[in-house]
Computed example of a mutant assay.
Amino acid sequence: MKIDAIRRSYTKDKLELDKLNPDPIAQFELWLKDAIAAELPDPTAMCVASVDADGQPSQRLVLLKDVGVDGFTFYTNLGSRKATELTANPKVCLHFPWHPLERQVIVYGIAERVSATQVAKYFLSRPKESQLAAWASEQSRPVSTRQALLQKFAEIKHKFEHGEVPLPSFWGGFLVRPHKIEFWQGGEHRLHDRFMYSKQDDNSWSIDRLCP
């Protein structure tokens, strides 16, 4: 299979310093609204990169569930590989790949656990099937067959057939507090527009244009 000639031109938009919001969170929210308005599949999907004790990076796609002045929030099984790695080494990188818009956002930050109250509030807002799946799956652990997983799900569904599904003790969330955020807009001739926001000691943000 020959793939070295696969390429396309990036011509949808340009990004200029004077058009950027001085607050990267506000700028991110503008781009996220664009991604949602464009009806992109999974506009809140982000790649979460963590590192294990041996320095081996790992990545997975996770859905962003909240964004605000403090940062970016997602939820997960606390026994999962990502949760284990982020607990040991909270340095994390998030990547939002909005390919149809020829845009990317990369977030560099520190992950911290969110409060039990916040976790419970979000968990209870989830569809019941998603709540049951959280109970049924020992995320990142080996499972013999898919049938075994479905059997566990059926057992959990029967157990909580009546009434609310309680919050599992092993389920939680992480807030990623950013210290750098990069915005990438594809450009003609591979001369892409890249801007890096860097957080300063006084909590303001500096902005640098980067070479593509």
Rank of each mutant, 00 (worst) to 15 (best):
A120N: 09
K152D: 04
K82F: 05
G173Q: 08
K91A: 07
P24W: 01
F123E: 05
W171F: 12
D208Q: 14
A53W: 00
F183M: 01
K33C: 02
V48F: 00
I6R: 07
V69D: 11
N203H: 15
L78H: 08
P100T: 11
L78E: 06
Q131N: 07
G172T: 02
F170A: 12
W98F: 06
L15H: 00
Q104T: 13
D66A: 15
R146K: 14
L167E: 04
A5Q: 07
A49T: 14
P97Q: 14
F72V: 12
P212T: 08
H179F: 14
K12Q: 11
L40F: 11
S130W: 00
A45S: 04
R8D: 09
T87W: 00
L149D: 11
L191Q: 11
V62T: 14
A154N: 13
P212D: 05
D34I: 05
R81W: 03
P41Y: 06
C93H: 07
Y10H: 12
I3P: 05
R8Y: 10
F123D: 06
S80G: 08
L167W: 04
G79C: 07
I156F: 14
K91D: 13
I207S: 05
G163F: 09
T44W: 00
M46T: 12
T87R: 01
R7Y: 04
E112F: 08
L32Y: 11
E29H: 03
G109W: 01
W205R: 07
R103L: 00
G172N: 11
S130T: 08
L63I: 12
G172S: 03
E29W: 09
N89T: 10
C47T: 14
D70C: 04
H162A: 15
A49F: 01
L15Y: 02
L30S: 12
L63S: 10
E161A: 08
S50I: 05
L20G: 05
A37I: 02
R103P: 01
A53H: 03
E188M: 10
V92M: 02
D42H: 07
R190Q: 10
P43Q: 05
D201A: 10
R146T: 11
W171D: 03
T84F: 10
G187S: 10
L30D: 13
D52K: 04
E129Q: 14
Y108K: 12
A133M: 06
V67G: 01
R126T: 01
R60I: 13
K199C: 02
D202E: 06
Q59Y: 00
G55S: 06
K33A: 15
A37D: 14
Q200Y: 03
I110C: 07
H95W: 04
D42V: 07
Q104C: 06
I110S: 09
Q59A: 15
L40C: 07
P97K: 07
S9H: 11
E39M: 11
N89M: 10
K19A: 13
R194I: 08
W184L: 05
D23Y: 01
